[in-house]
Design a protein around this nucleic acid. Structure first.
Lengths: 120, 120
DNA sequence: CGCTAATTGAAAAATTTTTTCAGTTGCAGA
DNA sequence: TCTGCAACTGAAAAAATTTTTCAATTAGCG
């Protein structure tokens, strides 16, 4: 981060620390955990981090959420109750990823929609 | 749609027709193609369709977009220029989808991030 | 330690989305 | 086909969300 001429301010650290705690958080989630960081700064920090590829913004059907872009993104979303959970195992077959069209794959995000056990 | 006690109004038909034309459109895209439909009605229609599972809302990093939920969703997003393209072949291995936890998979959405040929 | 460009926060502006409500309309039943 | 009414629509207003502005502050290089 400092490499790009950006400063490691307490506010940015605080937002990053919050993002590291939990996945797919809303702006409000982050705000709640960073009460000492101004609203505008949270927006700007997220913009910056998204721009740097450190954070990814996603919409699972209920507004913007943010999470660290480091890991894979495998979400299960219940269409009934809206619950979002995660799973680790990557069901992707690398051999079947698009190729030959010059697109270089860096990472991916997978959302599986359906019904959770509770909503059966 | 009529089954659920909903009316097949011209406005709804217009929005659906627009969604059928192209994938991942923004609200403005839809508005432009449905000038005869009021802004509020577009919002309400999309909400309804999303609620019915006919349409899916997604955020590929630049705000909400909508598309028919019928098909699979395989997007390639260039992290450099933001271009969004699609590919047909599904790289998912059904055998590796999460199971045993009672979650019933209905559909899925996959976003692949990287660099497009032009941005190499 | 001092300098300077980067950063911050508060207020204001712009944008996006939702609510309200009175008038309109699709469509089920007569 | 006609009728009644719940569902629907649009315009305006309200609310929520995001961005811009700008003066004051600060991280970090030298």
């Amino acid at each position: 981060m400092r490499g790009g001429g950006y400063k490691a301010t307490p506010q940015r650290m605080s937002v990053l620390r919050t993002l590291a705690k939990e996945q797919h958080q809303t702006l409000e989630d982050i705000r709640t955990q960073c009460p000492e960081v101004g609203l505008v700064t949270v927006y700007r920090t997220l913009d910056l981090l998204v721009g740097l590829g450190i954070v990814r913004r996603l919409d699972l059907g209920d507004g913007a959420r943010y999470e660290l872009a480091e890991d894979h993104h495998h979400h299960m979303i219940c269409e009934q109750c809206g619950e979002i959970s995660e799973f680790e195992q990557c069901p992707l077959d690398p051999g079947r990823l698009p190729a030959g069209d010059g697109f270089e794959v860096r990472s991916h995000s997978l959302e599986v929609y359906g019904r959770c056990a509770a909503c059966g």
